[in-house]
Design a protein around this nucleic acid. Structure first.
Length: 253
DNA sequence: GGCCAGGCCCCAG
DNA sequence: CTGGGGCATGGC
């Protein structure tokens, strides 16, 4: 285990996941059908005690080397890394990631979180009183478009339905090349290049992924004109996460 | 009260 | 294959 320092506030609120709450320094969510409660102080002990948390927080990946490399190739990136040390890419459930990033299109992170909560409390398993897991494909298999629209999912309702129907595509993704995997994911309605890249990154830990949303397009035009994701190789995904979070919190200047 | 949001579908050229 | 309108909803 690398035991790299993890900053919970940054890692859990940088836009890669939507289910965590921070109540006065107590971070909580349901992971693998278990209610998890963490503080920054007890985090290290928690991941040592629970293997599923060590995996979820990606404790074995080469963050030290990656950060060191990325700091050397660009000053903006170096600033971003120094401002948010301890940013990890989580290993999330692929189906949950698929659903969340379908919700993300033409939406705000605040509202994605609320829609996530609605799906959990409506369809998910209550693992502790008032704590719900994100629903599984089986729990969602009889849902209708009218139901989802009534819950405020809007034009994304049919996309969610198609994702539920085709969820078994996810079982096979890890056996394919990046481009083939992306192609397979994009057969799901509502999954395009950006959402597909997010699924491959957050659900399958494809660190070569480089999701380009509106923020990242601005970042690239402003700070990296005439460059693309290959400039950050082999750490494109981590660079993307730092730059996305940095630009969103601090702006571009 | 408009404007816009971690995009994508769909259709015209 | 490229470009642009339209999309549900709610937070600001």
């Amino acid at each position: 285990m690398q035991n790299h320092h993890v900053d919970l506030q940054t890692t859990l609120f940088c836009g890669q996941c939507f289910g965590w709450k921070n109540e006065e320094g107590v971070f909580h969510s349901v992971i693998d059908k278990k209610l998890v409660r963490l503080t920054q102080e007890n985090f290290s002990a928690s991941v040592q005690e629970h293997a599923f948390l060590a995996h979820y927080f990606d404790m074995d990946w080469e963050y030290e080397q990656a950060n060191e490399f990325l700091c050397t190739i660009d000053p903006h990136l170096k600033q971003a890394i120094e401002m948010f040390p301890g940013l990890h890419i989580l290993n999330q459930d692929p189906f949950e990631v698929l659903m969340c990033f379908i919700l993300s299109q033409n939406n705000t992170i605040l509202r994605i979180r609320k829609m996530y909560d609605v799906l959990c409390s409506q369809y998910g398993t209550e693992v502790e009183p008032f704590s719900y897991a994100f629903p599984s494909p089986a729990e969602l298999k009889n849902v209708t478009e009218e139901e989802l629209r009534a819950l405020g999912m809007g034009f994304r309702a049919p996309y969610l339905l198609d994702a539920i129907q085709k969820h078994s595509i996810l079982d096979d993704i890890k056996n394919h090349s990046f481009s083939k995997a992306l192609e397979l994911l994009m057969t799901i309605k509502g999954v395009g290049p950006k959402v597909g890249s997010c699924i491959l990154l957050y659900g399958f830990h494809r660190m070569e992924s480089f999701p380009l949303d509106t923020w990242m397009l601005k970042v690239m035009r402003t700070w990296f004109p005439s460059k693309d994701g290959t400039f950050f190789a082999p750490y494109a995904a981590l660079a993307q996460q730092y730059l996305f979070h940095y630009a969103r919190t601090r702006g571009l200047s």
